[in-house]
Design a binder for these strands. Structure first.
Lengths: 329, 329
DNA sequence: CATATGTGTGGAATCGATACCACACCAATG
DNA sequence: CATTGGTGTGGTATCGATTCCACACATATG
């Protein structure tokens, strides 16, 4: 490992001069600069970022805590974050919790020890402990996907997107609309989307039968089973479904196919996510595009601003959604 | 930011003693240890990883260079890598090239400057310049997805998987089998899979018409267009297709649906990837599962071994594939 | 009883960079 | 000619840890 000292010796200048040349600070003669650059090119020397960080307190690294890397949503958000960050010379240090919420806290500490310049958390819950912890973190912090008071949040408009989807079904003449949701710990996906569904139904004076509402987890299989429950347990069979994610909708769709209920002729399905797959199932799903990549790049922009201004001005940024109408309705 | 010096003062010992207590090296009296631990607990002190790395030359960070974060394949590989690494206290520093091969080289330098303990490259090409660069990197280095001589490589058995798929089609009675591939710069996906196709056809004394073989890029739309070319340009219409990726197969499938060719009754399709979506298109695709997550965790294991042993013993590790038979044949 | 061995501790050097300061030089200014 | 100010350079402290070394003391060994 080459050091600045060796470069200095080879170029016959002091370490200070090499440092100045490297960072374009202070004065360096043309002559000295050329010699230094020549040596650097020949040796392939790269300054140690650790030594640099130790002095400057800047790492040019942002920690990103996410529940899983394997979903399209996470992939898109991270891609969006990375697009902005890498353009500004920052890199991402990954922290994958595997949906284990204790790990969220652990990783916050770990990232602090690594002295990242900022932390972005793709959140799935708003547990009290977590919120407390976030508030006492002294570095720029941002959450995506959940609104946390006092913390810069980039969120989706879960409530209105849900209402709009349900409203669409109602306009198409549906009155008996079922719902597949997830645990309400996940305030955005579990609670807000459900609230949108219930409110829109009520606003249209439609009553909801208990069995129409099922809770599932985040995979296709779970959507399949939830649909089965809905069909088997409800007295009045619904004619439409709002599933809170595409995967749940796809699971439901595959169950309906199995029992020969034709979508969209006998039954309508809508969901949220606009995953690539939603376009290629049969029939293609009517869904809402949350523009995750934009959410990611917005988050990136915000955190860079927080770093630059050294100010934390808690605000909520809502990313626009797009309704995509396809054949499932 | 709390430092070891302050902790030492508060616990009435020297910095050395705190360090020993922290790292369980040397001797520390029970008495001193307790005082130190108490102070650490009260203050929430976390040692600076930078200062530590500067001395120890270890960062507990592995750089992962990948072509894109947005594909299922990348997601799975990274998840596999992370599973092994995080279990051993390592973290991933992400470097996304966005399919720009110049950036691969840039990122190698950047990761070196950040003094990562190792680099894993998810490779899409084997360009000479890149290979040269890799060879002069002095830290543990591993590639996934391409075989590079003299470098530890975790690869898939592209050649045999391809032959097996084509063989399956032949056993089902197909003789006119088309092929959609990608650029041969990508040696694994472009060249090896094509070689498997050609060799298996020849081994069965089947001739290939020029128009049956089309080149595409990595998206669904491109598969669609390639299939159109095959149908329109070939004199003898093929009865089956081997597409080198699921997405290409799905594109081809959607074209066939459009022109009312029924799969699997009039036409068979096989591909490689076992993406989640392959299971939910109509009909579900016969495909090969490359077990990307396992490839990732194997890569993680290998790089940890390289770090531990401080030895670079270039070898090739081939990950097993699984043939998944579904209704598209 | 002298010597060896095992504990426990603090001082100081070190890692590789940055940044401040002092100094030297040279040209322009009054 | 003395003074000023812009350039260019090197010395040295500093960042926050680890690690080696010296030393002090207690106990065990011959």
């Amino acid at each position: 490992m080459l050091t600045i000292k060796e470069i200095a010796e080879m170029a016959n200048v002091s370490r200070s001069t090499v440092s100045r040349a490297l960072n374009n600070s202070g004065y360096v003669s043309e002559d000295a600069r050329e010699r230094i650059e020549k040596v650097i090119k020949e040796t392939g020397y790269a300054p140690s970022q650790h030594a640099k960080s130790l002095r400057t307190k800047k790492t040019k690294v942002i920690g990103v805590i996410l529940p899983t890397i394997q979903t399209e949503t996470s992939g898109k958000i991270v891609a969006g974050i990375d697009r902005v960050l890498s353009a500004n010379g920052y890199q991402i240090l990954l922290a994958n919790t595997n949906l284990n919420s204790e790990k969220e806290m652990e990783y916050i500490d770990l990232l602090k020890a690594r002295q990242v310049d900022g932390i972005i958390l793709i959140a799935t819950n708003t547990e009290k402990q977590l919120v407390e912890k976030i508030k006492e973190v002294s570095i720029p912090f941002l959450v995506i996907g959940q609104e946390i008071e006092g913390v810069v949040s980039v969120v989706y408009d879960d409530y209105h997107a849900s209402r709009e989807l349900v409203s669409l079904l109602i306009k198409e003449g549906h009155e008996k609309i079922a719902f597949i949701g997830v645990d309400e710990e996940d305030r955005a996906v579990g609670y807000e989307r459900k609230r949108g569904y219930i409110d829109e139904m009520q606003a249209n004076k439609l009553t909801i039968e208990g069995a129409w509402m099922q809770k599932a987890v985040f995979d296709i299989d779970s959507g399949n089973k939830a649909m089965e429950q809905i069909i088997n347990r409800s007295k009045e069979k619904p004619t439409a479904l709002f599933a809170v994610t595409d995967r749940l909708a796809i699971g439901a769709l595959s169950y309906l196919k199995k029992i020969d209920i034709d979508v969209p002729n006998d039954f309508a399905i809508v969901s949220i996510g606009a995953s690539e797959i939603s376009q290629y199932v049969d029939p293609p799903l009517t869904t809402v595009d949350y523009q995750n990549e934009e959410a990611g790049s917005e988050a990136g922009k915000q955190i860079l601003e927080m770093i630059a201004s050294n100010e934390i001005d808690p605000k909520k940024i809502t990313i626009d959604y797009r309704l995509i109408k396809r054949n499932s309705v």
